[in-house]
Design a protein around this nucleic acid. Structure first.
Length: 527
DNA sequence: AACTACTTCAACCGCACGTAC
DNA sequence: CGTACGTGCGGTTGAAGTAGT
């Protein structure tokens, strides 16, 4: 690697540079500012300046020093190469492990990751990560070890929650996370997760998902996922890779039918362990769904849950992961403690377990979900979504109007914490909706941004919720209720837009299958 | 030794956000 | 309130280094 700071042969200051090629020289002369690698002389000037004036006010550097560099360039040079206490050289194993963990939790938030790696810069970490992606792509390995992703998913919920609660993306401290248990109470058909983390339902905001998507969707790594998982029955592999996972579901969650059929008002309280859905759609564990059908235990899918994977390959897997509500940590350190991947699992040479043999052939859903129709999953998603909106009560009403009230049951929230959060959430979303209605009160830029965030109705969570409404409640396309609910939820324009989009997107195959997800799952914002 | 393909990483770019005016 | 400016962040690029033939 070149050491640009010593490449003095072509990087002298404009006044003294006689060695540059004429094209190079004319390049920065034209703009008035020099570009390209820094010379040691320039470094000295910058160091001297910072020693005298301190960091900041980078645009003044040129003024005070005659350095023909823009402020941004000065800042970057200082931050990445000149400031004291910078570590140079390759990352240690500990650092590599930490990066993997941090990336799993934060996504491509290099600067924030760098804060956890003293002496390392965001650029270094970013480069390391990109290299790692390529390396593992070549090796056909996932980016994250399986042991990690559950924690990641959970953490991302917490993280999303904090973000949802208004923390600025830049300034929020992801370490300050509240702990909350996630218990689920079923009351007949109705259920809620007590303390269901709001962020958890905001799938689009789940950093980990996003970052996985980023990794996968980066133009440079288009085919990253393709070779990773030859086995076509990924879903059932969750049992293989995460023993006890599906059985957990089976044991802990009686089927929806049970809820419907039970006449007892008795509540069933279980600790949430939604690891299965996460496993199903984890793109980095299971790779691109390009070459093999994706088995989705979705009883609503006309194909019996086997979805032609070629279709959604470009967008599906990445964004369709579902949240785990398994456990939560209050801090990153806690997360670190709780996550127990063997150190080696994070590093390349030890990822061989990924090549686990495919699970036994044959239909295994009976093992996994014989008692757990994934309508439950849909219901959970809807529930999560509902809890993320102030209008959930309206939505409930809307739903309730279409199904026998006896079946809907009663929503029980058992923890005041959850209620408190609900209230603040209500206030928040009310203000959001109010903002939509009184858009004149906010700057256009902000208004548009907020609108987009609400308008992002193609998000998987919304779609899933709608799918559940469609199929689980049978109120889909006739849709007065649906439309009403969405109108209440999103506002007239957005609600209508949703209906339009939704219908368009789901024409053809049953709208509840993953196969007809619109390209949403790319998580692109609507124009 | 020469060439090619691939890898690495420093630096640039565009964008977003906060603040001062 | 709108604009300009400073700053920070994340994505991307391309030059230099390295490995393979």
């Amino acid at each position: 690697m070149s050491n640009t700071s010593t490449d003095s042969d072509h990087n002298e200051s404009p006044a003294t540079d006689d060695n540059n090629g004429s094209d190079c020289r004319s390049r920065w002369e034209r703009s008035g500012l020099k570009k390209g690698p820094w010379s040691s002389a320039e470094d000295d000037i910058l160091i001297d300046y910072v020693n005298k004036h301190g960091e900041g006010n980078w645009n003044a550097v040129q003024k005070h020093t005659g350095l023909f560099r823009c402020g941004k360039s000065c800042r970057l040079r200082w931050a990445n190469h000149l400031r004291p206490n910078l570590k140079k050289g390759a990352f240690s194993q500990d650092e590599e492990q930490l990066i993997v963990e941090l990336h799993a939790k934060m996504g491509n938030r290099w600067a924030r990751m760098a804060a956890h790696l003293p002496g390392r810069t965001d650029n270094e970490i970013k480069n390391y990560w990109n290299t790692r992606i390529k390396r593992r792509q070549r090796a056909g390995l996932p980016l994250y070890p399986p042991e990690m992703h559950l924690e990641v998913l959970d953490w991302s919920q917490e993280y999303a929650k904090n973000r949802f609660m208004g923390e600025d993306r830049r300034h929020s401290d992801f370490l300050q996370l509240g702990s909350c248990e996630s218990d689920v109470f079923f009351d007949n058909l109705g259920f809620v997760t007590t303390d269901m983390v709001p962020g958890a339902s905001d799938l689009s905001d789940m950093t980990a998902y996003k970052n996985m998507a980023n990794a996968a969707s980066s133009p440079r790594y288009d085919n990253f996922m393709a070779p990773m998982m030859p086995c076509s029955r990924r879903f059932w592999e969750s049992e293989l890779l995460y023993p006890g996972c599906s059985s957990t579901i089976k044991q802990e969650f009686p089927s929806p039918e049970q809820f419907v059929n039970t006449s007892s008002p008795q509540k069933i309280s279980k600790t949430c362990s939604f690891s299965v859905p996460c496993d199903v759609y984890h793109p980095l564990l299971y790779g691109n769904q390009q070459h093999s059908p994706v088995v989705i235990p979705d009883s609503h899918t006309p194909t019996g849950g086997i979805v032609p994977s070629s279709k959604p390959s470009s967008y599906g897997a990445v964004k369709l992961e579902l949240p785990s509500f398994q456990y939560s940590e209050t801090t990153f350190d806690q997360w670190k403690k709780s996550s127990s991947p063997p150190h080696s699992d994070l590093l390349d040479p030890f990822d061989s377990y990924i090549h686990s043999p495919p699970p036994p052939t044959g239909r295994q859903e009976s093992d996994c979900f014989s008692n757990c129709d994934t309508g439950l999953l849909d219901m959970l998603l809807l529930e999560a979504k509902i809890r993320n909106s102030t209008t959930k009560n309206n939505l409930y009403k809307s739903c309730a109007s279409t199904i026998p009230s006896a079946d809907l049951g009663e929503v029980t929230v058992s923890q005041t914490k959850s209620e408190e959060f609900d209230n603040s959430l209500k206030s928040f979303v009310h203000s959001e909706i109010s903002t939509q209605q009184n858009a004149d009160g906010i700057p256009p830029r902000q208004r548009e941004k907020k609108r987009k965030s609400l308008l992002d109705i193609t998000r998987p969570d919304v779609l899933l919720a709608s799918s559940w409404l469609d199929h689980g409640l049978g109120i889909a396309k006739e849709s007065g209720s649906m439309s009403d609910a969405l109108t209440v939820l999103l506002g007239d324009d957005i609600g209508n837009e949703y209906m339009h989009t939704s219908v368009g997107a789901s024409s053809g195959v049953g709208s509840c299958s993953w196969s007809n997800m619109p390209p949403v799952c790319q998580m692109t914002e609507l124009p």
